[in-house]
Design a protein around this nucleic acid. Structure first.
Lengths: 162, 162
DNA sequence: CTGATTTACATGGTGAAACACCTATTTCCT
DNA sequence: AGGAAATAGGTGTTTCACCATGTAAATCAG
């Protein structure tokens, strides 16, 4: 369904604006599907699951909060409190970091690993269904275009910051 | 910059997962740029601006709350309260709807129109910069692929709802 | 025409997000 | 080594989003 139809926009759209809208809108679908199919059933938020995945992917020493943050999709995430909530559920734990006592190392627990494992298969199944609508070349192109857009947006953001 | 580099992911990514990640991540950049360059300076949220644009694009009779909602990018938006805040700032107003007295018509005010107009040029400038990184054919392809993805995700969501 | 259902919206309460601020520790500079 | 600056992350507060509930009006069924 075209964006204009979906959002009931009658006026013609500026081309760049259409791309931006398409990205925002498509992301809503992705996020919503993963929410409903994956996160809500386990009473996790997407960000909480993201933390679990990051910890699972890391070494067994765990990560500092800052190391988690820079791996998050959303860069302004309130990681300390995300970790608090996961810790309250026994999915992660904090332990002292002798090397730098300003921060503690966050590690995923056995219970956390089990939860992640339980969700992993469905996560992959959801992801793979994307492949049905895109050929290999298309996917490569799509990724390349998104990457170019990100690089451009990043440049603009840095220009703004000055 | 590649996703794996950006998020410091060492393991190889499932292709479908990479697409999903790319969408989520690229959207963050878009949202952040628009936030910083456009919305924050006017102390508006993206959703509030979205409402203003919708109302400006509509007829001068304004829209019912439900008509606004179905045009929002984020479909679960708390439109009544969004309108409340805009109304408190004098950017929109509600007036009675004789045809169906369950809801009121929300209209953009002169002040709201002025604000939207003030933001419009910068909005277009931001949007047009997207065009610098994509050729016309690429843009068309990108929009088509995103549309296919949305259609697929929508199908999956509907299947879930049953 | 009357009662039941649906629709449209508002609102109340809860939990999380966003902002800044604060403290402890480390690093850098001289 | 000693003090300034930077870094890490915890916390307080306000705002907002989200869920469920409530209410009024329209629609439908008989």
């Amino acid at each position: 369904m075209h964006i204009q139809e979906e959002l009931q926009i009658t006026k013609p759209l500026e081309p760049g604006h259409e791309v931006a809208l398409a990205l925002l809108l498509t992301r809503e679908y992705v996020a919503r599907l993963f929410d409903q199919a994956l996160y809500e059933p386990e009473d996790l938020s997407d960000q909480q699951f993201n933390v679990l995945r990051i910890l699972k992917g890391g070494g067994k020493d765990g990560y500092l909060v800052k190391d988690i943050r820079c791996r998050m999709i959303y860069r302004f995430a309130d990681v300390p409190r995300l970790v608090n909530r996961l810790e309250a559920r026994g999915l992660v734990k904090r332990c002292e970091n002798p090397a730098d006592r300003r921060g503690s190392r966050v590690q995923i627990t056995v219970k956390g690993l089990a939860l992640e494992a339980r969700m992993h298969d469905r996560h992959q199944a959801l992801s793979q269904q994307v492949d049905r609508c895109l050929s290999v070349e298309e996917r490569t192109q799509l990724l390349a275009m998104l990457e170019r857009l990100r690089d451009d947006y990043r440049t603009q953001l840095e220009a703004l910051a000055k």
